[in-house]
Simulated scan of single mutants.
Amino acid sequence: MTSPVLQVAKLGVDDAAGNPVLAGISFSLYADEVLAVVGCSGAGKSSLLRALLGELAPGIRRVAGEIFCCGCAVHDADVERLRLLRAQQCAWLGQDPAQELVPTQRVEQLLLGFVPKTPEALSDAVTLLHAMGLPADDTFLHRYPHQLSGGQRRRVASILVLLKRP
Rank of each mutant, 00 (worst) to 15 (best):
Q88G: 06
Q88T: 10
Q89P: 02
Q89G: 09
Q89R: 14
Q89M: 09
C90Q: 04
C90W: 02
A91G: 15
W92S: 03
W92Q: 04
W92Y: 14
W92M: 05
W92V: 14
L93F: 01
L93C: 12
G94W: 10
G94C: 07
G94D: 10
G94F: 08
Q95S: 07
Q95D: 06
Q95R: 07
Q95M: 07
D96Q: 15
D96Y: 11
D96S: 10
P97A: 05
P97T: 00
A98M: 06
A98H: 06
Q99A: 15
Q99P: 02
Q99Y: 08
Q99T: 06
E100L: 12
E100R: 14
E100Y: 07
E100G: 15
L101N: 02
L101V: 10
L101G: 01
L101K: 01
V102K: 05
V102R: 05
V102D: 10
V102C: 12
V102S: 08
P103A: 08
T104D: 13
T104C: 11
T104Q: 11
T104F: 10
Q105R: 13
Q105V: 03
Q105G: 00
Q105N: 07
R106N: 06
V107N: 00
V107R: 02
V107W: 02
E108K: 11
E108H: 08
Q109D: 11
Q109S: 12
Q109C: 08
Q109Y: 04
L110M: 09
L110N: 00
L112Q: 10
L112W: 07
G113M: 08
G113P: 04
G113V: 09
G113K: 14
F114T: 05
F114A: 15
V115P: 00
V115N: 01
V115A: 12
P116S: 12
P116W: 07
P116D: 12
P116C: 11
P116M: 10
P116F: 05
P116T: 03
P116A: 10
K117Q: 14
K117G: 05
K117I: 06
K117C: 08
K117N: 14
K117E: 15
K117F: 06
T118S: 12
T118D: 09
T118F: 13
P119D: 09
P119Q: 10
E120S: 14
E120Q: 13
E120V: 13
A121E: 02
L122Y: 09
S123H: 10
S123I: 01
S123Q: 09
D124F: 11
D124R: 10
D124G: 03
A125M: 06
A125I: 01
V126Y: 09
V126M: 13
V126Q: 08
T127H: 09
T127Q: 14
T127P: 04
T127S: 12
T127R: 13
T127F: 09
T127W: 08
T127E: 14
T127A: 15
L128W: 04
L129N: 01
L129A: 03
L129D: 00
L129F: 03
L129W: 00
L129Q: 00
L129E: 01
L129P: 02
H130E: 14
H130V: 06
A131N: 10
A131F: 03
M132R: 11
M132I: 02
G133A: 11
G133H: 10
G133F: 06
G133Y: 07
